[in-house]
């Protein structure tokens, strides 16, 4: 079967995730940082549940009540001119 992309924004495949997990034997968070899965333009909105499932299945970490991969502002990509106040008072 062809490899399946999990994170569309960064084009991270299931194999990429599995290989990285095997190589570094790491936590879900570290795996995300190494592969950039869920860290692309959409902020993980599309792939977050999928990435969570893959990471849980690979690392065996329990899904907890905390959102596994932390959410931080801005939750939408922002242009520097918008952020810098060109349009603000």
């Amino acid at each position: 079967m062809k490899d399946v992309i999990i994170c569309r924004c960064e084009e991270v495949s299931l194999t990429d995730l599995e290989d990285a997990a095997k190589k570094y034997n790491c936590s879900a968070r570290e795996l995300k940082l190494r592969t950039r899965a869920g860290m692309g333009f959409c902020g993980g909105r599309t792939c977050r549940p999928a990435v969570d499932k893959v990471l849980t299945s690979i690392t065996g970490e329990d899904p907890t009540n905390n959102i596994p991969l932390k959410v931080a502002p801005p939750v939408r990509p922002l242009s520097l001119s918008d952020l810098g106040g060109v349009n603000h008072d």
Binding site: R8, C9, C42, R45, T46
Partner: peptide, 8 residues
């Protein structure tokens, strides 16, 4: 997604 979530 067609509603602004995915940015594709």
């Amino acid at each position: 997604c067609n509603i602004g979530h995915c940015f594709e």
